[in-house]
Design a binder for these strands. Structure first.
Length: 324
DNA sequence: CGTCTTTGACCTGCGC
DNA sequence: GCGCAGGTCAAAGACG
């Protein structure tokens, strides 16, 4: 196996642009991976204006809207979107060394997002969908040691919705309230850090997640969730609170001052969902780029919604954007 | 004893 | 067709 340092490191996640803006850079980034035509019931899933991370994992997340929202901020270094279905390799070297980083990123992001939206119902399964293989296994009828899954013959396995978070953290496995069982670990090409595979231990829950560390920024952990939990968050955590990372924020009802010790996200329910994250780490920051804000302002948000924005965005940002 | 991690083997899709 | 890389399985061991 030859290691090609120039080669793409993420085939799925596409970009790691979180980088290196050092200072105000946010600690958590979300990638919207892809979404199938899964019938999310927005009406019931999206009642609250704010959703917890775990709620998102349970299907409250409107991937489409998220993608849209993310598309609003192409220059953002915090929020990215990517689609599996469009899985053309992205030259991550651009955010590595090259100068034209942002432009390249923007282009990539925009294209990703747009395809994401347009393919929302198209069940992106092109590219290197590994899922198909399981179907194939059954097809062959060969009861090879493994792969004797409960897939039906000829039944195309739907891809689960996936999304990923980039989190600056020293611990790989971020506690999110669910119980996970590690079922595999693989070395990642071009990365010194392995990728771990976890599966939700709750019966009948097929949610998986992958955890890997960015080789470009070893302090960044990329967590990719696949699927949606069909069960509530287990009440009894296994005390990994030591990590100090609980994704379920206590501010669901009072989204005023985000607790800085928690990674959380706010979902703003509108036609465009505003997705914001902060993080537990020492350099807690709320990162919303101005373009995103500006966009929302231009969308003439109702006052109350703008108020929500204000809750999320430091006044300095607001002032800043007002001038723009 | 139950749960979880580790780890090597296996399977599959894709690019060449 | 072959090799590579990603993803998964499952046995064995660790741990509480």
């Amino acid at each position: 196996m030859s290691v090609e340092p120039k080669e793409l490191y993420y085939q799925d996640l596409v970009l790691d642009n979180n980088n290196q803006q050092g200072t105000g850079s946010g600690s958590t980034t979300m990638y919207e991976k892809h979404f199938s035509s899964s019938p999310y019931d927005h009406s019931q899933a999206f009642d609250p204006s704010y959703l917890s991370f775990t709620e998102c994992l349970q299907g409250g997340l409107d991937y489409n809207s998220l993608a849209t929202s993310f598309g609003l901020s192409p220059s953002s270094s915090e929020v990215f979107s990517s689609v599996d279905g469009n899985q053309k390799p992205v030259d991550t070297t651009t955010n590595d060394n090259n100068g034209g980083t942002s432009e390249t990123l923007n282009a990539t992001l925009n294209s990703s997002i747009s395809s994401s939206s347009s393919e929302a119902g198209a069940e992106e399964d092109s590219g290197k969908s590994k899922k198909d293989r399981q179907v194939k296994t059954e097809e062959g009828g060969e009861s090879s040691k493994k792969g004797n899954k409960d897939k039906k013959k000829g039944e195309k396995k739907q891809k689960e919705p996936r999304f990923a978070f980039m989190t600056k953290s020293e611990v790989d496995h971020l506690e999110d309230g669910y119980r996970w069982r590690k079922y595999g670990q693989k070395a990642v090409k071009n990365s010194p850090y392995p990728r771990s595979y976890y599966r939700c231990t709750t019966q009948k829950c097929t949610v998986k997640k992958r955890v890997e560390r960015s080789y470009q920024d070893p302090t960044t952990v990329i967590t990719t969730y696949e699927g949606q939990h069909n069960h509530p968050v287990p009440t009894s955590l296994r005390g990994n609170a030591a990590a100090g990372i609980m994704f379920t924020p206590p501010l669901l009802t009072t989204p005023t001052h985000p607790p800085q010790d928690h990674l959380f996200l706010h979902m703003h329910h509108n036609h465009h969902n505003l997705f914001t994250t902060t993080h537990h780490s020492s350099n807690t920051n709320i990162n919303i780029n101005n373009s995103l804000l500006h966009y929302h302002q231009q969308q003439q948000l109702p006052p109350d919604q703008y108020g929500l924005l204000q809750d999320i965005v430091p006044s300095m940002f607001l002032n800043n954007t007002h001038h723009n």
